[in-house]
Nucleic acid binder design. Structure first.
Length: 435
DNA sequence: CTTCCTATCT
DNA sequence: TAGATAGGAA
């Protein structure tokens, strides 16, 4: 395949403008074909995102451009890995489909997902594993939210005091338990990627690590009872989280989740302000397959670029998932709250009035969300803006009458303008219609 | 000089 | 086509 070659980069040219490649000591040795395996890419993405932590980015392209190959190589600290290999891979990594870029939308706040978890207990397994792996878990019935559920449930914050937990089952070959390298070397975390702490003393991030799932298959077995990767991410907060980041810099890509074992519950229900939850979150290609089938028809990506700030909000991001109907709801038993991503497309699609155009490429923090949910009652009844909500205008069109021509001005100069929902989305594919 | 960036090659 | 290479630019 690729033979070793002389690296003439940086070498002076001769009079003919040619690189003087006859210098022996520039021969690159030990350069072998670098196959970017899944694990290697995951690590690569971890480093990329880790390095990019805190760096502003407004698009997926910038997301990758934040990091330079050299520092990536250094942080990855993989013997034999060259800068050019990383650069080459970085080049390919940031090549995303156009529809991906154009469909990026920024959402300041997402509708709320309620998750009632009154009881909790400690998982015995996790206790035995030591504090590093100790996460409180709940032993309750599931809270099951679906797209068909009244949007009212999604909107009303429930100011409850609830613990948080993160449950990671089965560490065997569990990508969630991969070690993570800190850039500065100050912290070498050998635990789960999710640096979970106890229920007390959470002054900073609950989950501040970088989580990258790419082309990862969760529970790709048809066995409905076997859970190879049971990922329960619960961020149900009852403590003071002022100024903290609940989940930051999360990348979820190409995840195929079977058997309902992806349970992402980000439930920030406290009244504390300035909490960021799942900021800088990028989710793509999520397939939820309750029947153990592999559905590859998830090909839209969404992007949430800026931190979700200002008050109790949660955000669960997934777009254009495929949900196989007819699954056994009993499989959700391991989750305290289950978010069915089905029909969540309306949160991310570039729907809405054509006249609104939903511009989002200009760095605006929020555009418009348009609702067309037949399950909803009168908008005034179902979508009240409780106590000083940041939502200024919420629009619902039960009759599917199309986009509102009214302007619905934002009288408070709030971050939110209009909200539009379309709960009739049934398919997984709604490609970006923009050019 | 090194590294970045991107087109091009294999 | 994934990954390496080339070569100009910074």
């Amino acid at each position: 395949m690729l033979q070793r070659k002389r690296d003439t980069k940086g070498m002076k040219k001769n009079n003919e403008g040619e690189r003087q490649n006859n210098v022996i000591d520039k021969v690159v040795t030990g350069k072998e074909f670098r196959e970017w395996t899944e694990d290697l890419h995951v690590r690569f993405m971890q480093v990329v995102h880790q390095l990019g932590e805190g760096r502003k980015f407004t698009s997926l392209i910038i997301f990758f451009y934040r990091c330079f190959p050299k520092e990536i190589v250094e942080v990855m600290s993989l013997p034999g890995l060259t800068r050019m290999q990383v650069a080459s891979h970085l080049q390919r990594s940031k090549n995303v489909p156009h529809e991906t870029k154009s469909s990026f939308r920024k959402f300041r706040v997402m509708p709320y997902l309620q998750a009632n978890v009154p009881n909790q207990q400690w998982n015995q397994d996790q206790i035995q594993r030591g504090t590093e792996y100790s996460f409180p878990t709940h032993n309750t019935k599931n809270t099951f939210a679906r797209g068909e559920t009244s949007i009212q449930q999604l909107y009303r914050p429930q100011f409850q005091v609830q613990p948080h937990y993160l449950n990671i089952n089965n560490s065997f070959n569990n990508p969630f338990l991969s070690p993570q390298t800190n850039v500065t070397g100050e912290l070498q975390q050998r635990g789960p990627l999710f640096g979970m702490l106890g229920s007390q003393g959470l002054q900073d991030s609950i989950i501040g690590n970088t989580n990258f799932w790419r082309a990862m298959t969760l529970n790709n077995e048809d066995n409905l009872t076997e859970k190879n990767y049971n990922f329960d991410l619960n961020v149900v907060e009852g403590a003071t989280y002022s100024g903290s980041r609940i989940v930051s810099s999360t990348y979820i890509g190409n995840a195929i989740i079977n058997n309902y074992n992806l349970n992402v519950i980000a439930d920030n229900v406290t009244t504390y302000s300035s909490s960021a939850m799942m900021s800088d979150t990028y989710v793509e290609n999520v397939t939820i397959n309750g029947l153990g089938e592999t559905n590859t028809n998830a090909n839209s990506q969404q992007y949430v670029g800026e931190p979700i700030m200002s008050g109790p909000r949660n955000i669960v991001v997934a777009s254009h998932e495929n949900y196989v109907v007819g699954s056994n709801s009993n499989e959700k038993e391991n989750s305290d709250a289950y978010l069915n991503f089905n029909n969540m497309d309306y949160l991310f699609q570039n729907l809405g009035p054509s006249g609104a155009n939903l511009p989002n490429e200009q760095g605006n923090e929020f555009d418009q969300v348009y609702s067309n949910n037949q399950n909803l009652g009168p908008p005034s009844a179902n979508l009240p803006n409780q106590q000083d909500s940041e939502f200024d205008q919420v629009y619902s069109d039960d009759q599917n009458l199309g986009p509102p021509s009214a302007n619905l001005p934002n009288e408070h100069d709030s971050e939110f303008d209009q909200v539009y929902f379309d709960d009739q989305v049934t398919g997984a594919s709604t490609p970006d219609s923009q050019e």
